[in-house]
Write a protein that binds this DNA or RNA. Sequence first.
DNA 1: GTGAAAGCGCTAACAG
DNA 2: CTGTTAGCGCTTTCAC
Lengths: 345, 345
Amino acid sequence: MTAPRTKLVDVARRAGVSPATVSRVLNGNAPVSVSTRARVQNAATDLGYRRNTLASGLRRSFTRLIGVVVPDVANPFYTEVVRGIEDTLRVAGYLLVLCNSDDNQEKETEYLELLADQQLDGVVLAPASTDVAKLEDAVASGLAVVLIDRRIPGGAYDTVRVANRDDARILTAGLLTASRRVAHIGGPHTTSTAVERLAGFMDAHSSVGVYPDPELIIETDYTELGGHDAMKSLLEMETPPSGIFIGNNVMALGALRALAEEQPSTAPALVSFDPLPWWASSLHPVTVGAQPTYQLGQKAAELLLLRLADPSREPTEVVITHDRGGARSGDSTSSTSGLRRERDA
Amino acid sequence: MTAPRTKLVDVARRAGVSPATVSRVLNGNAPVSVSTRARVQNAATDLGYRRNTLASGLRRSFTRLIGVVVPDVANPFYTEVVRGIEDTLRVAGYLLVLCNSDDNQEKETEYLELLADQQLDGVVLAPASTDVAKLEDAVASGLAVVLIDRRIPGGAYDTVRVANRDDARILTAGLLTASRRVAHIGGPHTTSTAVERLAGFMDAHSSVGVYPDPELIIETDYTELGGHDAMKSLLEMETPPSGIFIGNNVMALGALRALAEEQPSTAPALVSFDPLPWWASSLHPVTVGAQPTYQLGQKAAELLLLRLADPSREPTEVVITHDRGGARSGDSTSSTSGLRRERDA
DNA sequence: GTGAAAGCGCTAACAG
DNA sequence: CTGTTAGCGCTTTCAC
């Protein structure tokens, strides 16, 4: 039933050459005469030869496999990141191994070990924790590492992150052009992202010489419910804000729900820091996604590829600012179950 | 910098035994005396030994890697399927290689070949096409195959699919209990799924002795725009339907958008065949997701594992009916970027 | 129970 | 340019 795969020796025999020569033709890294090359290639196609990457990898010590460890692909944020990584790796001939950590330390560690055991070439990691030891192990066992989204103190790793403060400032400034009464629904001040985004919100205000009404600055917990309740309280104010800058996607969804429930006669303009799934914008016309998640993934993959090419490279930190174009490449025109995706504002 | 990994021989030397013995201890498949076993285990932990899965795989000819080829993980339908697969594979010690085909034949084929080259053990495939030859190649090169979502004529493969007709009937029946005026926004009659779902819609009607108004049955193209336009036309009717059964998730989102635009005084109850992302239900309270996507993934992974264990097994077709419980296992309580997920109605 | 030896399929010296 | 040889790290007969 499962016929044994043709192997390199078979090709060699048929072409009347040594295995080494076949290997050389396949890899194209050593001089081979045109005629033998042709004979080998014919033999290979005749036999439908496909190289055993595993064996090749064992010898050359790489696998062309890259691990991606994220809390949860089901989060639209990471879904897009993963696609960005995958599309980039694909053209470079790498395959992606997906791992969901559920923000769980143990799972994360377990995966990292598994990935190293499998001799993966590298890993893109959205760290659940700030546990550096684990990462050092990974690197020690030969994995190239790129961090995304969350930074790890010490800065010894390639990192791709978002320009929290700057982007927050720009997004808020956009709202301020329409009105001075702009609110902020933010995450907990215990997280660096929330602090930075709030700072950007303030920056935008000071550069137009306005001090925001403290009542309009709500700190909640980065959850859907938090966003919902915050939105509700804003809508119930005597003078509701005319624009709201919301600190992450989950809270933005909660805010949308509140909006749907309340149906205010004049709805405030909403800006979400993170992108919402493409179709969310169809529900409340003014919703805006800001964070170029897909590109974040792309960039992470590119960094990893660079490090693979030159392991002694200085670690760099790439800061992605809000989208200025650069669409997703393999964009699918819709089909049975295809989805079209938002174009950023 | 990158210290060479400890290998099996090192452990053997330190324990004062032969490599063969170490291997036996590691695999636990051959008799080893208790005392040597202990010595080997100590040596292994002392040295922090981790097996090179690649080398082991080359020898034993398996990789514990499973490919998953779907049109697009960014589609909430597949996102959940992938999580279902991943969670199941994880506990069995397998890793998941993610491939997005974008419903593109070439990409799909390319991936299938790559996966075979990498000697993956198996693949879960949501086929973009009905090209059987390609699948036969895959199987011939030793891949175990499980099909999901879309069926391939001939039935020679393990398949997990959804009870299109039955579920459509049940969902429609639900709407019919509230009112006799129920509409259907369906996909193209060229697809088996659309035909089956329409049949279920009709079944529900005949069992209550009602023949649906032909005007209420709209065939469109499984796209967001199609759903939007269909919804709009339904809302503009003199007597709009009081319930609508919508054939897939993308069209349901379009319908939601139309609803948001039109803001009718009395909104019809909506039922979407596919699940929407968890938060969509917050936008229009009556939205219902039906297809237990996560479980579909779980089941597919289980089937694959079974086939791996016994390759000569008869191919089976598993039909999943709409959710009757069975929550996702690794469900994360929300966190910085975690999302809570919908509970099915 | 344990060791020696051969080999999974491919590639990298090293000759010629 | 091309063939021969050795070996990546692990597992598995086959002896003892």
